[in-house]
């Protein structure tokens, strides 16, 4: 079990073995406002780091969620379809988006740890 890491686009990653759980940060959900819809990827989809993984919609905005690491989508959080508010309520927990089987673990190196991300958000 490794520690949580963040991208500059405000996605988080938590790695367990060779699988990574991905979501958006509390800062991101706060900026977005009330989440009304989440468009999740198909299971089995192979995705490159930095490419569109999902779309999250508030009333007035639709934002792409980019894959912070590349790999194959092995699981998606279907509960968000009926309860998109979960992203607002528990962004780091029940509001996860997808699980990705890592293609290249070294991609994690470019991501920020908790402290670095906090400093990054404070600088915005």
């Amino acid at each position: 079990m490794s520690a949580i890491r963040y991208s500059k686009e405000h996605e988080w990653v938590l790695v367990d073995g060779d699988t990574a759980t991905v979501g958006i940060s509390p800062y991101a959900q706060e900026q977005l406002g009330d989440v009304v819809f989440v468009e999740l990827p198909e299971i089995g989809k192979k995705i490159e780091k930095g490419k569109e993984l999902a779309v999250v919609e508030s009333v007035k905005a639709a934002s792409e969620v980019y894959a912070p690491i590349g790999g194959e989508v092995v699981e998606v959080n279907n509960a968000l379809t009926d309860a998109p508010a979960t992203v607002n309520e528990d962004a780091l927990g029940k509001g996860w988006f997808a699980k990705i089987k890592l293609a290249n673990k070294s991609e994690l190196d470019g991501l920020m740890d908790e402290a670095a991300y906090k400093a990054y958000v404070a600088s915005l």
């Binding site: 405000h10 991101a28 900026q31 406002g33 934002s63």
Partner: peptide, 8 residues
Amino acid sequence: MADRPSGT
């Protein structure tokens, strides 16, 4: 991410 006020 967008920066918009909520409607309510």
